[in-house]
Amino acid sequence: MTIVTISSRYQVVIPRDVRERLGLKPGQKVQALPFKGRVELIPLEPIEAARGFVRGIDTTVPREGDRT
């Protein structure tokens, strides 16, 4: 377990081992969420990373008669 200190400006440094395990880069954005009495930092991925994630999805679905 790694312990960090909150600075007088409410800043924290993410330890190197955590940054490396998550692949965090300088300037990368993270979302900070309060959750059950703790703060969770969720790395945000650029929208380009989602490109092609539904490739190969089955698009054969029944359509209503007035939709084509």
Score class of each variant (00 low, 15 high):
residue 67 R to C: 13
residue 58 D to N: 15
residue 55 R to W: 04
residue 26 P to Y: 03
residue 43 P to F: 10
residue 21 R to I: 08
residue 54 V to C: 04
residue 29 K to T: 14
residue 56 G to I: 09
residue 23 G to Y: 00
residue 53 F to K: 11
residue 19 R to D: 03
residue 9 R to Y: 06
residue 44 L to S: 07
residue 66 D to A: 14
residue 46 P to Y: 04
residue 41 L to K: 01
residue 41 L to M: 02
residue 51 R to T: 12
residue 18 V to P: 01
residue 61 V to H: 13
residue 9 R to W: 03
residue 5 T to M: 04
residue 30 V to G: 05
residue 55 R to E: 13
residue 12 V to N: 01
residue 38 R to M: 11
residue 39 V to Y: 10
residue 37 G to A: 02
residue 8 S to Y: 06
residue 58 D to V: 05
residue 8 S to P: 07
residue 6 I to S: 02
residue 7 S to E: 06
residue 29 K to H: 10
residue 66 D to R: 15
residue 26 P to L: 03
residue 46 P to E: 13
residue 21 R to E: 13
residue 50 A to W: 08
residue 48 E to S: 02
residue 33 L to C: 11
residue 68 T to H: 15
residue 43 P to C: 06
residue 33 L to Y: 13
residue 2 T to R: 07
residue 8 S to R: 12
residue 29 K to N: 08
residue 47 I to P: 07
residue 29 K to G: 08
residue 28 Q to W: 09
residue 3 I to G: 00
residue 14 I to E: 00
residue 48 E to M: 04
residue 52 G to H: 07
residue 18 V to H: 00
residue 65 G to C: 06
residue 15 P to M: 03
residue 64 E to I: 12
residue 15 P to W: 04
residue 32 A to S: 10
residue 23 G to C: 02
residue 11 Q to R: 14
residue 6 I to H: 02
residue 38 R to A: 14
residue 44 L to P: 05
residue 22 L to V: 01
residue 32 A to F: 10
residue 48 E to W: 03
